[in-house]
Amino acid sequence: MFESFIDNAIKANQKIYKLIENGLSQELLEPTSRGAGGDISLKIDLLAEKIFVEHLNKYGEIISEESGVISGDKNFQIILDPIDGSDNLLSNVPYFGTSIALKKDEKTVLGIVTNLANGEIFIKDSHNFQRGKLDKLVFKKVINNPFAKLGFFERSYCSKKLVTFLKEHRLKYRSPGAFALSLAYAHDVDFVVYEGFMREYDIAAGEFFCTDLYKLKTDQFLLVSKNKETFDKISKFIL
């Protein structure tokens, strides 16, 4: 079942990737109504959701940021963010993607996150965590990057105290604006931290990717890092 699910998830991502690569019409970037996740959905959000539903709904109940619950086999839940980083897409910032988490008995068993800006795809199950390209589908194991010089701080624009702390401790960061995607790259960077209210669409797949990293999660923060020294510094401040 998982192999078939992955195959169809890849096909859906390839279709959306090709759609964006060929250039989106202005109409697809227009806003519609407020989605289930609380943000205003773009037409491209809804189109991407439609493509995912066509490919994945046969595997389980879909819980999407745009439309909420889409009925299906209740033995499996598919947590879906059809476009992660919509504001980046609107602003021509090449950092946006898709996020899929497959859950069984309230436990994530499979995660798939795709970077639609460069075609990179991350897939993790209970045995392997791999990365590859949508156009080649040649995968390699995700490993820690020992040379990382900076981290990701999502929603840093909403923070005051943590921004000051990171500056004082000379912990460099970027705030790219697509949380699931940033968690997919957590093994590449020094740390990933998020401050603010978290929705399941944002973190279900990405958090599953980080089970082998140091992690701290509160109602307002999620911090992951492969570097214990960095993790201890930031987590001590958060707590």
Rank of each mutant, 00 (worst) to 15 (best):
P82L: 09
K107S: 12
S126K: 15
S126R: 14
I70C: 03
E106S: 12
G60T: 09
D84E: 13
S71Q: 08
D84Y: 14
I100M: 03
D73K: 04
I62K: 05
E106D: 11
I100V: 11
N115K: 07
S86P: 01
H127A: 02
V69G: 13
K103I: 08
T98Y: 04
F129V: 14
S91N: 02
E61Q: 14
K74G: 15
F76D: 12
N128A: 13
F76A: 04
F122V: 06
F96N: 09
I123M: 05
R131Q: 08
N75F: 07
K104Q: 15
I63G: 09
N75C: 10
S67A: 11
S71K: 09
S64K: 06
V113N: 00
E61L: 14
T108M: 03
G60R: 05
K107G: 04
D125H: 06
D73F: 05
V109L: 11
S64V: 04
N75R: 08
S91E: 00
I62V: 11
E120T: 12
S86G: 05
D87P: 00
P94E: 08
K107I: 11
E120N: 09
E66G: 06
F76V: 08
K74E: 15
Q77A: 01
G72F: 10
I78K: 10
F122C: 04
E65I: 02
D125M: 10
K107E: 07
P82D: 10
F76C: 11
K124S: 14
D105K: 05
F129L: 15
V113Q: 05
D84W: 15
T114R: 01
S71F: 11
N115H: 10
F96T: 03
V69I: 12
K124R: 15
A117Q: 10
H127V: 07
L80P: 06
S99L: 10
Q130C: 02
K104G: 12
P94N: 12
I78Q: 11
V113F: 03
I83Y: 01
S71R: 14
K107M: 05
I100H: 01
D73E: 06
L110N: 10
K124P: 13
K74H: 15
R131S: 03
K124A: 13
